[in-house]
Design a protein around this nucleic acid. Structure first.
Lengths: 104, 104
DNA sequence: TTGACATGCAGGTAACTACCTGCATAATGT
DNA sequence: ACATTATGCAGGTAGTTACCTGCATGTCAA
């Protein structure tokens, strides 16, 4: 997993919306996705390219159409590396803070 | 939770390193964090400001020092909104893909 | 009080990002 | 074949980002 690409891909509202749209109905074409976006088709293409680079979306060509599918694996990897790690520490954090405030 | 701020904050290797450093030892000062960063103090300040804006880091002043603490809550929120949602669909995705390839 | 230390603030620059327009290519259906 | 439809590719631009230098402020300890 390339954490940098994944987080940068997720750091844009349009791209998060694209993922939501694909979650509602997986396998949509570029044209279908554009109908919900309020921006030029070319801009959407760029966003989808970034999602694909981050492996968050996979594509399949069917004739002149390009179908887009969510790939949930990188999201799960993000969870393993960047959420669980800090949750494990969660309970100890308040304790640390208190200790510091008391002068350590 | 402001997903935009959180993802943008996480979309930078330096800031992710800062979170890791704080995970190893919570409550470090700006100076301590800088020792591990290989950039000017002012740049680190900027990164910590962005983490703080995203509520990923909280600070407490102690005299002339500023102590930095991780706040794991936004990470958990990210998980709830952006990981679990797509995991729920996980099993059905391959099925969708297959169906599309067969001509739907 | 004064020198040393920890941080804050202002501004400047090169690189990146998100958007656009215009044109090119490829597949479909009549 | 030809008009239509779906997507690809090449640039151009305004705004953002990540870094820097220089100077100001606030705190500690002798």
């Amino acid at each position: 997993m390339d954490a940098d690409k994944v987080f940068k891909a997720l750091g844009d509202a349009t791209r998060r919306k694209l993922l939501d749209l694909l979650c509602e109905r997986n396998g949509q074409t570029l044209g279908q996705l554009c109908e919900n976006l309020d921006m030029a088709r070319q801009s959407a293409t760029q966003h989808l390219g970034i999602l694909e680079e981050a492996s968050l979306v996979s594509t399949v060509r069917r004739g002149r159409e390009k179908l887009h599918f969510i790939n949930p694996v990188p999201l799960h990897d993000v969870y393993e590396r960047w959420v669980r790690k800090f949750e494990r520490e969660r309970l100890s954090l308040l304790h640390d803070l208190k200790k510091e405030l008391e002068g350590e």
